Simulated assay, not measured.
Amino acid sequence: MTNKHFVAKIVPLNEAKIGTAAHGNASFDIEGDQLKISIEMWDTPAGIQHWEHFHGFPDGQDAAIATMTQDVNGDGFVDLPETEPVSGTTMVPFNDAPADMNIPNDEYPVADDQGHFAYTKLVPLSKLSANFKAAFNDTALALDKRVIYIHGVPSGLNLPASVAGEVGHYDAHVTLPIAVGKIEVK
């Protein structure tokens, strides 16, 4: 997988309930043993940390973005578990150390007062592939079969008890998807 370029247009999810339409762009550039990840977001909930990951299916099935049709319990929110049938599981985090694949932590971007953040990271593919294989029994990142999610709403936002998504000691405020994009070969 040398010298490949992937992009994703990131569109809002749950915007009617969270009061902002988070949107942005992502690019993934593979050159030799380096993966350069660049993500820029606007109109995210301001002043808070936003988890961001690519999701997919370990069996190589093509992932699709979740829409409000995935709100199977009818509470008006598409929560993390409701994304799984179309998007698969959380795979690689876009935090301070993506190759470590340590998903629940506090090392993700924080939006400024206007809800903007930009994230860029160079990742050694050999390390990422080794950890990906250990987690999913596959070394193929298959970016064109993945989707990117941006998560996170303020802890003061009133979420109904039906909104699920606890990961470790992090509650649904941290994991609620606010934007999603399909990763495509460019």
Rank of each mutant, 00 (worst) to 15 (best):
residue 150 I to N: 02
residue 135 A to M: 10
residue 23 H to T: 13
residue 162 S to D: 10
residue 124 P to R: 04
residue 181 G to S: 05
residue 58 P to M: 08
residue 90 T to L: 05
residue 62 D to R: 07
residue 180 V to S: 12
residue 56 G to R: 01
residue 158 N to G: 00
residue 8 A to M: 10
residue 111 A to C: 04
residue 150 I to H: 02
residue 125 L to S: 01
residue 135 A to T: 03
residue 155 S to V: 07
residue 176 L to R: 04
residue 182 K to Q: 11
residue 137 N to V: 02
residue 131 N to Y: 03
residue 115 G to H: 04
residue 150 I to F: 00
residue 169 H to R: 13
residue 23 H to K: 15
residue 2 T to G: 07
residue 112 D to R: 04
residue 154 P to H: 14
residue 170 Y to E: 01
residue 109 P to W: 00
residue 13 L to V: 08
residue 47 G to W: 00
residue 143 L to H: 12
residue 113 D to H: 08
residue 89 T to F: 15
residue 67 T to Y: 08
residue 120 T to C: 09
residue 140 A to N: 13
residue 129 S to K: 14
residue 109 P to T: 08
residue 41 M to F: 06
residue 67 T to G: 09
residue 140 A to W: 09
residue 129 S to P: 01
residue 169 H to P: 10
residue 132 F to C: 10
residue 5 H to E: 13
residue 177 P to N: 08
residue 115 G to S: 07
residue 153 V to A: 04
residue 115 G to R: 05
residue 165 G to T: 08
residue 158 N to W: 02
residue 24 G to M: 15
residue 129 S to G: 06
residue 144 D to E: 15
residue 30 I to L: 10
residue 12 P to E: 13
residue 128 L to Q: 02
residue 68 M to P: 06
residue 85 P to E: 10
residue 8 A to R: 02
residue 101 M to L: 15
residue 97 A to Y: 00
residue 170 Y to W: 15
residue 174 V to L: 08
residue 87 S to E: 11
residue 54 F to Q: 04
residue 173 H to A: 07
residue 173 H to M: 11
residue 60 G to M: 09
residue 144 D to G: 11
residue 51 W to V: 00
residue 43 D to H: 07
residue 104 P to Q: 06
residue 13 L to P: 15
residue 147 V to M: 11
residue 102 N to V: 14
residue 165 G to S: 13
residue 29 D to R: 13
residue 39 I to S: 03
residue 99 A to F: 00
residue 55 H to Q: 12
residue 84 E to P: 00
residue 26 A to M: 11
residue 50 H to Q: 12
residue 28 F to V: 07
residue 13 L to K: 14
residue 149 Y to G: 03
residue 98 P to G: 11
residue 45 P to G: 03
residue 22 A to G: 14
residue 133 K to T: 00
residue 17 K to R: 15
residue 90 T to F: 01
residue 150 I to E: 01
residue 178 I to V: 15
residue 146 R to I: 02
residue 98 P to T: 03
residue 160 P to N: 12
residue 130 A to E: 10
residue 106 D to F: 00
residue 179 A to Y: 00
residue 108 Y to C: 07
residue 71 D to S: 01
residue 154 P to T: 14
residue 119 Y to S: 04
residue 123 V to R: 07
residue 88 G to I: 06
residue 20 T to C: 14
residue 152 G to R: 08
residue 71 D to N: 08
residue 63 A to N: 03
residue 135 A to Q: 09
residue 109 P to K: 01
residue 41 M to P: 06
residue 109 P to L: 01
residue 22 A to M: 13
residue 172 A to L: 02
residue 141 L to D: 02
residue 163 V to M: 11
residue 144 D to K: 14
residue 96 D to K: 01
residue 152 G to F: 03
residue 34 Q to N: 14
residue 103 I to D: 12
residue 4 K to Q: 14
residue 17 K to V: 03
residue 122 L to I: 09
residue 103 I to F: 12
residue 175 T to R: 02
residue 185 V to W: 04
residue 17 K to Q: 15
residue 56 G to F: 02
residue 35 L to H: 00
residue 57 F to P: 03
residue 118 A to K: 14
residue 117 F to L: 13
residue 29 D to N: 13
residue 105 N to C: 04
residue 64 A to E: 09
residue 96 D to M: 00
residue 14 N to A: 05
residue 27 S to C: 06
residue 162 S to M: 12
residue 156 G to W: 12
residue 182 K to E: 11
residue 26 A to G: 15
residue 112 D to P: 03
residue 43 D to S: 06
residue 119 Y to G: 02
residue 165 G to W: 05
residue 135 A to R: 05
residue 4 K to N: 09
residue 178 I to F: 03
residue 103 I to T: 02
residue 60 G to A: 09
residue 66 A to Q: 08
residue 54 F to T: 01
